[in-house]
């Protein structure tokens, strides 16, 4: 973990209520995909945790949806503004466990993480299939990034207004030897209860601190209580309870 004042390099509307922000960092703070950071916003007490869609030595990019006052304030921030952030939080995905043909399933706000993870897996010589799900066409983002990469890609919308109609869990019928997922609880649960292959899930929880002090985000697992922020946010699929 490192505290840094990060300058906003870009903050743009991607799709309905969904924005992409790019922040400057002095050096790479995210050695593994699936790690996160916590942003301090002027006049809000708690930090906001976000996972990354992309990162390089000198900057990182993430996608956020406007859901409350904090994210609303973020959507109005301009490039050049500096925000205090705690960088390099959480455990991140363990790529060594992946088979050659991993399936990556992302839903809603969890799709950005899958973009970052896919990039890492491609570097490792894996052949990922990425399945993403949105409610409606107007919510779609990250399509360009995913289409640019040499991977298999399936787009789903619940109402069928773009891509295939239905949930991205339909991709579970495609051949795969490992599953990575990030998204709403019902999506993760559906994967866990229907797919027999091993995998890792990244969880989202309301957090207090983001670094293991307050026990605000604890979940029960097969091995006892675990803090999503410090022991996670990535957990072995087999260790989670539904």
């Amino acid at each position: 973990m490192k505290e840094e004042n990060c300058e906003i390099l870009e903050n743009v509307l991607l799709s309905e209520n969904t924005y992409r922000m790019t922040l400057r960092q002095q050096e790479e703070n995210f050695p593994r995909p699936g790690m996160f950071f916590a942003l301090s916003l002027p006049s809000f007490f708690l930090r906001r945790p976000f996972s990354l869609m992309d990162h390089h030595d000198s900057f990182f990019t993430f996608v956020y949806k406007v859901v409350g006052k904090g994210t609303k304030a973020m959507s109005e921030m301009r490039a050049g503004t500096s925000l205090n952030a705690l960088l390099g939080l959480g455990n991140g995905y363990d790529l060594s466990k992946s088979g050659d043909h991993p399936l990556l399933i992302g839903g809603g706000s969890g799709i950005g993480v899958m973009v970052d993870l896919a990039r890492f897996l491609l570097k490792e010589g894996k052949h990922p299939l990425v399945a993403v799900g949105f409610n409606r066409k107007v919510e779609i983002y990250a399509e360009e990034e995913l289409r640019k990469m040499s991977l298999s890609y399936r787009l789903f919308t619940v109402d069928g207004s773009a891509g295939e109609k239905g949930f991205p869990t339909l991709a579970l019928s495609s051949p795969h030897d490992y599953v990575y997922a990030c998204g709403p609880f019902p999506l993760l649960k559906a994967i866990a209860l229907t797919d027999p292959v091993p995998g890792q899930f990244s969880l989202e929880r309301r957090m207090g601190c983001g670094y293991g002090c307050c026990m605000g985000c604890t979940i029960e697992t097969k091995h006892g209580p675990r803090r999503v922020c410090k022991d996670g946010p990535v957990f072995e699929k087999e260790d989670l309870l539904w």
Binding site: F44, F45, L46, R205, C214, M215, G216, T218, I219, P225
Partner: peptide, 23 residues
Amino acid sequence: RFGNPSPRIAEAKDGVIISIGLE
């Protein structure tokens, strides 16, 4: 103790409301 069910954190102006329940 596992503590209380989630959500057990809520934000307030210049503060935080916590309901961990002694985990």
